[in-house]
Nucleic acid binder design. Structure first.
Length: 473
RNA sequence: GGGGCCGUGGGGUAGCCUGGUAGAUCCUUUUGGCUUUGGGAGCCAGAGACCCGAGUUCAAAUCUCGGCGGCCCCA
């Protein structure tokens, strides 16, 4: 029943996914997992926020999951980046297909032939759409629920088209802003990192990623934003007629977030007792536990009902099951319920409620009259601040600035390594010889890092800026 | 890409080396009943398992091979 300690992160993650009923990992195909109802509810709430953000200036769409080989292969760099990982449909029934169909590894080549039809003139721009879909990649490394999947079940991908490079770049900045808002909402600290030129999205001009740090000191990419320039526009002939009457190629961006956001949510805040979830995304926000002594049930139940009446706007569980109170506390703590109200004969007598926050040990009493939506929202907001502070503190312990190249091999085994590095590819490759992966250069300095942006390249001594290397998931 | 370990009730394990009825390995889970309820209650009676396939053998959870699935280490 009890989880392994979070100190042993890999084991802890594996167990909590199952015992907290996020995903059932017993599905008999490698890399595919089943969402439990509870996990799916969490997904729905988290993606609800993402939808809310996207809906401000994007339209939600749906494109087919199957892409003909003829389209997938059009952009040569793009196909080279994915060809090892594509699942192919080769038959319809017993007959071989004339044109093989790929299960989308991502949707650029599904969407952009249609963009060509949709975009005629400058009034059609900017075009901004997104979809939340499954994608397939034949992963050869170890698969892991929510983190490395052969079917990504929850890929939010946005695709935009603009009149020129600059307007597309504006969109890149906006996208970064949206993702910041999303991860701030989840109280997950992140680094915004520009990927090395040799490690960008296949077909992109440049790639900017969101990376966070897992409790075992490995990095996890939890979002990417790509400036595609007019690379795909040229391949798929997406042009528009401008006010001057000439035709120009559009410039595009795309950006995505997968269920790794939920992996990071679980990993960042969870503890030895189970999930710890921000109030807004918790499938159960409040657990009300009555303590039913024999002969006093009615009094306690009446008072509970009075309380429940006040909690109508929230996702509440009223647990009057047979178990003893202690067992119920553990059960709902495992599920990450942010607020717990306990009501026994004493509380009914004094018209008070015992309140307990998931992220803190202490309990305290509050008169029932003081409990209302505003109070609860205030508690929720305070809890988010505490979660973020705690997350930042734990991340700080996993980051280390590296001043000497000779120290890197040692440090990168346990920490996400920060260093000054120039943009020279040779220097970047030198970094990776010491283990870990060069994630790239910090686009901005996060508030939890106190180091100067500029410095001498740790390899060649030239002009360098802050770079990050880590063992990554 | 290279190497190693593993698969037994829903979950975690003992048994495998040295083949001999899973009639009771242990913990957890679960069904019914009684008694309980302020941090994982107790008792009684039940339920539930050898990954799949082939081979060796009188006999396979146990030995061999293959498949599927999982974990770890190195690059």
């Amino acid at each position: 029943m009890s989880l392994p300690s979070k100190e042993n992160f890999s084991e802890w993650f594996h167990e909590i996914i199952q015992t907290a009923e996020i995903m059932d990992i017993r599905y008999p195909v490698k890399g595919l997992y089943v969402w439990f109802p509870f996990g799916f509810k969490l997904r729905q709430l988290v993606y609800g926020k993402l939808r809310e953000i996207m809906d401000r200036e994007h339209s939600e769409v749906y494109f087919p999951a199957l892409i003909p080989e003829t389209e997938l292969g059009k952009e040569s760099e793009h196909i080279r980046g994915f060809e090892d990982e594509v699942y192919w449909i080769t038959h319809g029934g017993l007959s071989p297909l004339d044109v093989k169909l790929a299960l989308r590894p991502t949707s650029e080549t599904a969407m952009y032939p249609m963009f060509k039809l949709w975009i005629r003139n400058h009034a059609d721009l900017p075009l901004r759409v997104y979809q939340i879909v499954n994608t397939f990649r034949y992963e050869t490394k170890h698969t892991r629920p929510l983190i490395r999947l052969r079917e990504i079940t929850s890929f939010k991908e946005a695709h935009t088209a603009h009149r020129n490079y600059e307007e597309a770049e504006e969109q890149v900045k906006k996208a970064i802003g949206y993702y910041k808002e999303f991860y701030d909402f989840l109280a997950i600290p992140y680094m915004v990192i520009r990927r090395p030129d040799w490690d960008k999205f296949p077909g992109a001009v440049y790639t900017i990623a969101f990376d966070t740090v897992m409790p075992d000191g490995r990095s996890l990419q939890i979002g990417t934003v790509h400036h595609l320039g007019d690379n795909f526009a040229k391949t798929f002939e997406i042009t528009y007629e401008a006010v001057d009457g000439n035709h120009y190629f559009v410039h595009q961006t795309c950006y995505g977030i997968s269920e790794r956001c939920i992996a990071s949510l679980i990993s960042m805040h969870g503890d030895d007792l189970g999930l710890v979830l921000p109030f807004e995304v918790a499938p159960v926000q409040i657990a009300v536990i009555p303590i039913l002594y024999k002969g006093k049930e009615e009094k306690v139940l009446d008072f509970s009902n009075e309380l429940l009446e006040k909690l109508k706007g929230f996702r509440v569980v009223f647990d009057k099951g047979e178990e003893r109170p202690g067992a119920k506390y553990y059960k709902w703590e495992l599920k990450g319920v942010p607020l717990r109200f306990e009501i026994g004969p004493k509380e009914a007598e004094r018209r008070e409620v015992v309140v307990s926050f998931r992220d803190e040990k202490k309990k305290f009493s509050v008169p029932i009259e003081e409990i209302n939506e505003q109070k609860i929202s205030q508690w929720a907001e305070e809890m988010r601040a505490r979660l973020r502070k705690k997350a930042v503190e734990s991340i700080k312990l996993k980051l280390k600035f590296v001043g000497e190249l000779s120290e890197l091999s040692e440090i990168v085994r346990e920490y996400v390594s920060i260093m000054h590095l120039c943009k020279n590819r040779d220097c970047g490759e030198e970094i990776e010889k010491h283990g870990g992966k060069l994630l790239g250069w910090l686009e901005e300095i996060p508030d939890f890092l106190e180091v100067s942006k500029e410095g001498e390249c740790i390899v060649c001594g030239g002009k360098g800026s802050l770079a990050v290397s880590a063992r990554s998931y």
